[in-house]
């Protein structure tokens, strides 16, 4: 008989909170305290001739900042390494966000508000870029999931693709009795369906070249001018259903893209930052 110790701790729903609120904003407070201490130290220590990276205090801040940067960059591994042991990726992300933000203060104080056209300021600029992209990401994570969920309802990406495929085959069947020009209209839609498309389309949701839309528009024109045709009515309703599904799928893609696009800045610039940071440290110790 196994012991009565409970290995799995179910989440207490009352304590259920997102990454920004994790542990009652524990990491926010830690980050704020770190900033407060750094600022207090900056104000109290009278660095000669003026505050900069080369003073004792500057080195201290620089070391803290460099270690933080490396540790923050390791989040990418933490996220993907499913190790055993008690850890919460949510707490890690919370720490990542708040400590990352505190770097703005620590880094700026380390530089002593002293910037120029050199590798040191390059590292600083890259760090700011990473942090700003991260702020965008955190904001997106806080706001967008609700919209993603509302748009998705209970359907999945695969279901959309299946719906579109099935609508296409229904369209092809329905187009059998049509004449050439009308059938070509339907073919516009069935032969080319853009859901993902370019990054621009995905981000803006602008699919102005959408063949289904053109098919709907031209079909409307044909129906206005020609005599009533029940097969065209059916095609019209099929095309409109396809358009709705496409619109829903594209909204989904758009939100998903926004949730991911900042990472294409955040991650590569992090690597650039690590390189610049290395150059900065090496140059400081060898050429200063």
């Amino acid at each position: 008989m196994a012991g009565g110790v409970r290995q799995v701790d179910r989440s207490d729903v009352r304590k259920h909170e997102g990454f920004l609120r994790d542990g009652n904003f524990r990491w926010l407070w830690i980050a704020l305290a770190l900033c407060a201490v750094s600022i207090a130290g900056y104000l109290m220590i009278d660095a000669e001739p003026r505050p900069r990276g080369g003073t004792m205090y500057g080195y201290t801040l620089g070391t803290i900042g460099a270690l933080l940067i490396v540790w923050l960059a390791l989040f990418g591994i933490r996220k993907r390494a499913i190790t055993t042991g008690v850890y919460s990726l949510k707490a890690w992300l919370s720490a990542h966000v708040y400590l990352g933000l505190s770097l703005l203060v620590i880094g700026t104080l380390h530089a002593g508000f002293h910037f120029g056209w050199n590798v040191h300021t390059l590292a600083y600029a890259l760090m700011v870029l990473v942090i700003v992209s991260g702020m965008f990401g955190a904001a997106a994570y806080a706001v967008l999931p609700e919209r993603l969920s509302a748009n998705r309802g209970e359907t999945t990406q695969r279901q959309w693709l299946e719906t579109i495929r099935s609508l296409d085959s229904q369209l092809r069947d329905a187009a059998q009795p049509l004449d050439r020009a009308e059938a070509d209209l339907v073919r516009l839609s069935t032969e080319q369906t853009d859901i993902g498309g370019s990054l621009w389309s995905r981000l803006t949701g602008d699919y102005s070249g959408c063949k289904t839309r053109r098919a709907v528009e031209e079909l409307a024109r044909t129906r206005r001018s020609g005599p009533a045709n029940p097969s065209l009515d059916q095609i019209d309703s099929l095309l409109k259903r396809k358009q709705e599904t496409l619109a829903q799928a594209r909204r989904h893609i758009r939100i998903k893209t926004i949730l991911e696009v900042w990472l294409y800045v955040h991650v590569p610039v992090t690597f650039a930052l690590l390189a610049a940071l290395t150059a900065h440290i090496v140059s400081v110790f060898f050429y200063w």
């Binding site: 799995v8 179910r10 997102g18 990454f19 008690v86 919460s88 949510k90």
Partner: peptide, 27 residues
């Protein structure tokens, strides 16, 4: 339920935003 894995269910541990939760109905 990730039985035998120290730390408990991986799905909950690995959720970066805290969206994944495990609950029992009576709670």
């Amino acid at each position: 339920m990730c039985s035998g894995i120290k730390g408990g269910p991986a799905c909950v541990r690995a959720c970066p935003t805290g969206a994944a939760i495990r609950v029992s109905p009576e709670n």
